[in-house]
Design a protein around this nucleic acid. Sequence first.
DNA 1: GTAGTGTTACTCGGATAAATATTGTCCGAGTGACATCGG
DNA 2: CCGATGTCACTCGGACAATATTTATCCGAGTAACACTAC
Lengths: 172, 172
Amino acid sequence: MKLSEGVEAAIHCAAMLAGVEGQGTLPGAAMAEAFGLSPSYLLKHLNALTAAGILESVPGPAGGYRLARATERITLLDIVLAIEGRDPAFRCGEIRQCGPARLDASAYAKPCGINVAMQKAERAYRAALAEARLSDIVAKHMRDADPRSVAANRAFVERHQRPQKSTKQTER
Amino acid sequence: MKLSEGVEAAIHCAAMLAGVEGQGTLPGAAMAEAFGLSPSYLLKHLNALTAAGILESVPGPAGGYRLARATERITLLDIVLAIEGRDPAFRCGEIRQCGPARLDASAYAKPCGINVAMQKAERAYRAALAEARLSDIVAKHMRDADPRSVAANRAFVERHQRPQKSTKQTER
DNA sequence: GTAGTGTTACTCGGATAAATATTGTCCGAGTGACATCGG
DNA sequence: CCGATGTCACTCGGACAATATTTATCCGAGTAACACTAC
C-alpha cells in the first residue's frame, strides 16, 4: 500500500499545465526544473499520462505538453490510474482454494467475501478521487494558497510556455 | 498502489483463527499448509499481526496463534495497517517548494491542496475498511459460502487446533 | 525583397542500469509435553 | 503406583538471500524554427 512517488509529480504537472493559455505547451524539462526533479524520469511519467489520453505531446522546437481536455473533465483518479495502473490494489489470489484439500470448482462459485470487502473499500477510494476534479484543485489553490506562491507559479508558466504557431497570444 | 501479497494471507488466517474455540491455538505451519504458502514467510506476516496486538502467539509444543481480542473488535483496517504499515499511501514530498525559486517558508503555511485531496480519499478508504469487522466477514462466509467449503474449513480447524491446557474441549 | 532549401537546435520517446522494497528461505532460542527413572 | 526429572520435539522469532518493482539515466528519432542562398 504505497503509491509511486511519480503520482505527486504527475498531479503537480497537470495543475501547472492548467495554467497555460489556449493551445500553448510547456516543455517537460521546465516542469522538472520547477519541482527539482530529474527531467528524464519525469518524462516517463508524462509519457504515461499521454498514453492515457490525459496529456498531448508536441514534438520539435516550441514543443512540450498540454492538457488533452478541459480541467473539469480530468480527475485525480484519471491521473492516479494512469501512473499506478488500472489494476486494483488488492488482487485476490484465491488462496482459499490453494490448499492441499482442494474441493470441486463448483464449491468456489460464490466470490470470496474478503475480496468483496476489499473491493468495496477500493471503490470508495476511487470514488473520492473521481470527485476531485483538476479544476477544483486549481480553483482552490488560486483562492486559498499564499498570493506569493500563486504569483510565482503564474510567472513561471508565463516564462516557459510556448505558444502554438496557429494560436496568437492574447495578452501582453 | 499495490497492496502486499501478504495482506490476503493475513486476513484469511485471521478468519481461520476466528474458528478456533476458546483459548485454543493454531500453528502457523498449519495455516500455511491450508493456503499453500511458504510456512516461513507466513510467519513473518503473522509476526507483524502479533506485534500490532491483533494476534497472540504461544510458543512451545501445542503452541500457535490465537486472536488477541473478539472478532467484533478486529477490522480489516487493523490487519491492513499491521501488514502494510501505518503510513499513508500518498506521502506529500512538498515538491511545490523544491524548485529553484523557493519562496520564504511562510508562503507554504497552508497545506498543499493536492495532499488534502489525496488524504481525503485515503480517509474514505480506511473508513470503509474500518467498517468491515472480522465478525461480519466470518458470518457472511458461514451464511453465503458453499456448505462444502464451510465444512472443509471447519474440519481443518478441528483437526489442527491445539487446545490450551487450562481449557477443556467442550465438544466431541 | 521574397521564396525555397539546408542546417540546426530543441523536443519527446524508448531502451538501458542502479537502487529499493518485497518475497522467500534458513537456522537458532525458547518452551511445554513426554518418557524415563527413582521412591 | 505416584512423583520428580531429564530429554526431546515442536513452536515462534529474527537474521540472511533472491526476486520483482520502482527509480534514475542515457542516447536516438523526429520536427519545426532559423539562417542562408538564389531568384
